[in-house]
Design a protein around this nucleic acid. Structure first.
Lengths: 244, 244
DNA sequence: TGATACATATCATCCTACAACTTGGGCCGA
DNA sequence: TCGGCCCAAGTTGTAGGATGATATGTATCA
């Protein structure tokens, strides 16, 4: 009854907005662990929504393990380490520093996974990885579909590790990055970038075919550093293990 | 009005149960991506709950990106790679194979993070890591609190990387493992295990103090393989990068 | 003083109603 | 016959109230 703005084209629902607001308040430390949240009625009045909406929002936070609701008492903020789900705030990813950190995490995950995949891949995996590679460099080269194929390439490598958790985590991180990248900030002419990008993928694929873990890891690491640079995120090219 | 069983001590709410049921149906492949779910009314009749409960369940699945609901049409199952949250099924972790995979993921994350931490740690981080180490080997040595201190040690190292995403991911994975481990299957007398465990932690700490990334990575890798073995999970001691 | 019973506060669930949106079919006119 | 418009039905989104379940503090009474 209060906020009838954004009535058109609003994709995110009211419960989602309320949950995001509370979540942000908890993350920022305004609501410390152990704190009791306002009652559902107070929240519904504060946001100008029905109690039903508040309940759906709280249900989501509770499912994530961020808060705990106890009948007859109230809802309390939990300690951050006991959350049951990982969720990445896309607003925060608009900050380049955060995007840089996410790329760093991706690099860790994918580099070692590429090595694992090189050691364990079966012919079936090589086939689907090759298929993705062909789509990427083929006729869809300049289309939106090329980005899909790029992601698919990475996901298929993750799948080749035979470890479903690795697959899940890598898919998740890649998807978050994809949704938050400003493709506008490409650093070079598009044509050159595509050439370089496809070339890096080919090198990874070749290492997988050869079954060479060290080469696969190195190629993947170089690729992710390059991919980050191409979208305007400078990633420190730290190489840690092995001889200097 | 139908299922008044489990009225006492019931921690999980009706929406949670409905969400779990639907989620499992999707995971198992009975509801393929693209499929339309039954209407809210049909679901409420099927489960014998109110439409409100169904809505809360659907709100959770939607927040995770498992399904997408569109006003006026219905709710549809989404492809697994575009989900917005990572959630690990604790039932699945009762299978040793899955636990082994999760340990493998943890090893990847923590080994490289230890190297990062060695390069970036400040005195403040070393202090809090040392504090956790002391608690672990101190008087709480035989208590439940020792496990808390163990986890804290790892979380503090993750924090020393200065990368909040790495911290979040590692905390999450460690917590999932902790909740699902059967400490009953210890492979050796408790006393020996604690000695070895503390010793491994000390070696990691020393590498961090020395600021030696390669040593920190190696020590962490050895520790996690050891920790897995101690709880009955055999982890292949694969070492990939560097010279053989 | 101590224990029991009651009042209150809060979440959990249910119910009904209406608004917003999509789809499909029927009606009407050309 | 064909094409466009409008309306009706179905579905999700939101509102608001009613009742049950549970925990806590208070007041009463032995």
């Amino acid at each position: 009854m209060k906020q009838r703005l954004a009535a058109i084209g609003t994709v995110e629902t009211l419960p989602h907005r309320v949950a995001a607001f509370l979540s942000r308040e908890i993350e920022s430390g305004e609501l410390n662990p152990g704190t009791r949240l306002p009652t559902e009625q107070e929240l519904s009045e504060k946001f100008g929504v029905s109690r039903n909406v508040v309940r759906e929002a709280i249900a989501q936070l509770r499912a994530d393990g961020i808060i705990e609701a106890r009948q007859g008492i109230g809802a309390f903020v939990l300690a951050p380490e006991q959350r049951a789900a990982i969720r990445i705030d896309r607003e925060a990813l608009k900050d380049t520093h955060n995007m840089e950190r996410l790329f760093e995490l991706r690099c860790i995950l994918e580099a070692e996974s590429a090595a694992l995949a090189a050691a364990r891949r079966k012919q079936e995996h090589l086939d689907s990885i090759k298929a993705a590679l062909d789509r990427m460099g083929g006729e869809e080269r300049w289309e939106e579909g090329s980005i899909d194929a790029d992601l698919l390439f990475h996901r298929e490598i993750a799948r080749a590790t035979g470890n479903s958790y690795i697959h899940t985590f890598i898919s998740f991180v890649c998807e978050q990055i994809r949704h938050s990248i400003h493709y506008a900030r490409l650093t070079n002419p598009l044509h050159d970038l595509v050439e370089v990008n496809v070339g890096e993928h080919v090198r990874i694929y070749e290492a997988l075919v050869a079954g060479d873990p060290a080469a696969a890891e190195a190629a993947m690491r170089a690729h992710i550093v390059g991919a980050a640079n191409r979208v305007g995120v400078k990633l420190p090219t730290r190489k840690i293990s092995g001889a200097k």
